[in-house]
């Protein structure tokens, strides 16, 4: 019974993906129609400069926003886990968790209006583009990092940090030699999650981006409305391959011993 559910669910999740992977090697111009084996769509993909440009921009924005989200989320998670009860703490917690639950269309509109308002008041940001997408994705990612960091900090034995202080470590040394190494797995997971969210986001980027800064998902979304070529299938294979390699690396690193 459980196994049947698991098989059904995994089959459902994988069916379109596997079909994409199979038909990525089809000669036919029509997606999901078999026309003999070919790698022409991979070649076409490699020659599609607009797509490559968008992909490169997306990767850079994803890495940058995951990094900023890591810093902000670490600070947020620290305050949530370690500052006890302070004035406004319920509001602080609600705001820190809000990006997790806000519908993306609302977040997108809200951040766009923020940038427009800031520009009217201060002149910055003079135009919307990669910078504003970076900030928007960081705002989203920091909430995810914060949750992971808070949970990890809360689960740590407080005696670990106390014993470090007892053995002569200054507060900074306690953080650097004990706390930080122990929360690294959560930080890595948070960074990866923020990276993935950024790399897959259509809605926020559509709202807050400007001309000349088209991310990969936004580009693909516009292509989808025009009608996709089997290039999309080839791209899916490339993404899956990348993810499998990354996942394999993560698995090897995290293996104890």
């Amino acid at each position: 019974m459980k196994r049947a559910f698991l098989a059904l669910g995994l089959g459902f999740l994988w069916a379109p993906v596997l079909l994409m992977a199979a038909y990525a090697f089809s000669e036919s111009r029509v997606p999901f129609q078999w026309g003999g084996f070919s790698t022409r769509w991979f070649t076409a993909l490699a020659a599609n400069e607009r797509l490559l440009e968008a992909a490169w921009l997306s990767l850079r924005i994803a890495a940058a926003s995951a990094s900023l989200a890591l810093l902000l989320g670490l600070a947020l998670g620290w305050v949530l886990a370690r500052h006890g009860h302070f004035a406004g703490r319920p509001i602080f917690g609600a705001l820190a968790g809000a990006p997790l639950v806000l519908p993306e269309v609302v977040t997108g509109l809200a951040l766009l209006l923020l940038f427009v308002g800031l520009q009217a008041l201060t002149g910055w940001p003079a135009q919307r583009g990669a910078m504003t997408v970076w900030l928007a994705h960081s705002a989203l990612g920091m909430a995810y990092v914060a949750v992971l960091v808070q949970a990890r900090l809360a689960s740590l034995d407080p005696a670990l940090e106390e014993v470090a202080a007892d053995l002569g470590a200054s507060p900074l040394a306690v953080f650097g030699t004990v706390t930080l190494p122990l929360i690294v797995p959560s930080l890595a997971a948070g960074w990866l999650l923020a990276f993935t969210l950024s790399l897959d986001d259509v809605v926020l980027a559509s709202f807050v981006s400007g001309p000349g800064a088209t991310t990969l998902p936004v580009y693909l979304f516009s292509q989808l409305r025009l009608g996709m070529t089997p290039e999309a299938n080839a791209l899916a294979v490339v993404m899956l391959g990348g993810a499998a390699v990354l996942g394999g690396i993560a698995w090897v690193i995290r293996r104890p011993g």
Partner: peptide, 11 residues
């Protein structure tokens, strides 16, 4: 999920 939401919808 790593194929991306847009590509999965395209599929």
């Amino acid at each position: 999920f790593w194929t991306g939401s847009v590509l999965r919808m395209a599929a």
